[in-house]
Write a protein that binds this DNA or RNA. Structure first.
Lengths: 174, 174, 174, 174
DNA sequence: CATGAATGAGTGTTCATTCAT
DNA sequence: TATGAATGAACACTCATTCAT
């Protein structure tokens, strides 16, 4: 909630540079507005992940993990202002479907990426995809939510790729 | 949110079997009540982690990670009903200090545990502790928040220890 | 609208000597409150009519009409304060059923009264009942709504019974 | 209110085939617009009554009442769509003067009509005029406001002339 | 001490009105 | 002159908090 104070419709509208009335001309109710913001934010992140996966296809695990973590972190940080507040808000919204969609897209991209690895073969690709995605998303959030200091960031930047790679190597055949 | 409806003071009081008035005799305001609930919940989890760490001290990495993940998951699941709602609520509270305390205690326990490992030596123990804790906490939350089905749980139970162990091995000297 | 200004919930509550919050403890929403007030008002009037009809049963037409008009006017005037405002409000409410109920009760009473007349016999009792009730209700309202001065009242008091009697005589067999 | 929805300025303007802005070029505010509509509607009815009175002048009471009721009912029905909504709206407007004007014109016409009756003489012509007008206006409104079905209409068409004539005969000298 | 009715500030939402195009 | 997006005051309703019993 930090920099935003209570997310009242009036405050949100003012922050957006319009009046409440105007806001209600574009969104039928508060939930719809918040949903739209969340959607847009998630879209940015998903696209970043999809592009990273495409770009990294066929590279060795070390490069993959490094690149994936890097892109995800960058995407999240680029939109940090609202990012955190959004997670808190998402609980009140009916975001199940939205989240499911986004998750599915990320998983599709990650899965393809993993399958393209020249130096690893995964027996249960779906399980590994789920695990890697959960690891990536969860760790980043947990790492940044209470303190997004440069120190914390540096730790994530250095350790997360390691985690991912180590895990993938561990579950890869041969 | 579902099962709890809106967390109004009256509803919370009724659910606790007392009247609003009585509740206000024990807690100066809503935040204090929520803070107390959060505190108690975190205390349970922290104690579970501390005990696990003590119990697992001196065991090989494989046993450590397996045991730690198991204990953490059990502790979280034992209080799942409120657990998720709490995360949403925590955002409104000024929980920085509380979280910091809890985090510090967990880190202390984990650090001691890692240092006791017979089959691993860590150069930067603080960084590793932070990373492991973030991995554990973040992945569990991300894994369960949108769907706590048995399938998901099974995945966490099988993959999380793997992740932890693989990471620790990767950052351990020799 | 006169003495009440806009019927905002806050104003209504204040006028009732309580706060908005208290009002909402007794009525789920504004409509329900207004409905309840309208209901109570109509109940008073209906009871007055029913009692008048019972009391006047068996009396000659002249006495009947005189008594009925007198009772109806008294009942309406006793609650004049809100009476007018209510009619304006009733339009927004879903009062169809309420009005239908009240109308049916009045018709039942009036019908019985007419049937008890010693000096008149009506061929189509239902049509006459409807007509008499409409005449009574409509004329009183039209007479008082824009000016409830003593002069107007006196006119209604003297002419309405005449109208009713003349009509009933006209439609009565022999 | 059904068929009209909420009478917002925008909706009214759209229904009139112009934009809100244009509407505000012709009417300084909503009340003025509504006032104008009411005025026009009342004008139609008054003119109908005036013409009927002129046409019926000198005819016997039976024809007079029949013709007057017929013309009034036709005039009201011709504009039924808005007619009812208007009554509800009129409450918010400051229509006292408008209503007074219209009433005076109707009374003038009716008075002249009554004085022209070849088969009746009225001692207090003003009182009778007031009574007859109130009877006519009130009964029609009360009869139609909650149900303008053909049955109801038929009842009004048959009974109202009877009421008027019976009353006039009753108050007429000899 | 426990209660829960009363309070009223605060929130989401609407809609009459304005004004830049 | 016509438009309709923008405005914000005003309203219905909620809920944390108090206090008489």
């Amino acid at each position: 909630m930090e920099g935003i104070g209570k997310l009242t419709t009036t405050r949100v509208a003012e922050r957006a540079g319009v009046s409440v009335g105007t806001m209600y001309q574009y969104f039928p109710h508060k939930q719809a507005l918040l949903y739209a913001v969340l959607e847009q934010y998630l879209e940015h992140v998903v696209i970043a992940v999809e592009q990273a996966c495409e770009r990294l296809a066929g590279t060795p695990l070390a490069e993959m993990t490094e690149g994936l973590v890097h892109s995800y972190l960058e995407a999240k940080l680029r939109h940090m202002p609202g990012s955190l507040a959004l997670y808190a808000i998402a609980a009140d919204l009916d975001t199940a479907m939205l989240i499911a969609d986004v998750t599915a897209r990320v998983d599709r991209a990650v899965r393809r990426l993993l399958l393209s690895a020249p130096d690893a073969v995964f027996d249960d690709i779906d399980k590994v995809t789920f695990a890697l995605r959960t690891l990536l998303v969860g760790t980043v959030r947990a790492g940044l939510e209470h303190d997004a200091s440069p120190t914390t960031l540096a730790m994530l930047r250095s350790q997360l790729p390691l985690m991912c790679r180590a895990y993938l190597v561990a579950v890869s055949r041969d």
